[in-house]
């Protein structure tokens, strides 16, 4: 393009088309369509971001909730649910020819049962001791 001598200058050119003016309606519609799509895209990206954030927040919340309680306490709740389920199943089965077997007790529940039984026996022995003290001759 730096004025090479081999290049020949243009001698014939088509005349420019007559000036037709600006089509304002077409320009406005085109602008509106572009703005619309851009807004849709921005809204989609924003809502998409919020939605993905919600997923991660819920996962983090669930993990936090799963830190407590431990499996021992969970087992007692599961045992209660199993008792409920068995009661419903046994009640609906009218043709059973044998008695059902209860579910095994979770370890923590056995510990609770033992502690309560021990407390009951302590209370009874304390009561009988005090009754003995009262009824004993001086």
């Amino acid at each position: 393009m730096n004025g090479t001598p081999e290049a020949e200058p243009v001698t014939q050119a088509r005349p420019a088309p007559p000036h037709s003016g600006i089509n304002w309606a077409a320009l406005l519609v085109r602008m509106l369509a572009r703005v619309w799509i851009v807004l849709l895209l921005l809204a989609g990206a924003a809502f998409g971001g919020v939605a993905v954030t919600q997923v991660f927040l819920r996962q983090a919340e669930l993990e936090q909730l799963r830190r407590e309680p431990g499996p021992n306490a969970y087992a007692i709740l599961a045992y209660r649910a199993e008792l409920k389920r068995q009661i419903e199943a046994i009640s609906s089965n009218r043709s059973a020819d044998s008695v059902p077997t209860p579910p095994a007790r979770p370890v923590l529940l056995e510990e609770i049962d033992l502690a309560r039984a021990r407390n009951e026996s302590i209370v009874q022995s304390t009561r009988s001791e005090s009754l003995g003290t009262i009824s004993a001759p001086p």
Binding site: A75, A78, A81, E82, V99, P103, A104, P106, E110
Partner: peptide, 23 residues
């Protein structure tokens, strides 16, 4: 045909796969 009381069943074994035994 003798009913075992639910409160007197043995405790869960350590290897039980039930969710109420070893969740």
């Amino acid at each position: 045909l003798r009913c075992t009381s639910a409160a007197s069943t043995p405790a869960c074994s350590l290897t039980s796969q039930d969710p109420w035994c070893n969740p």
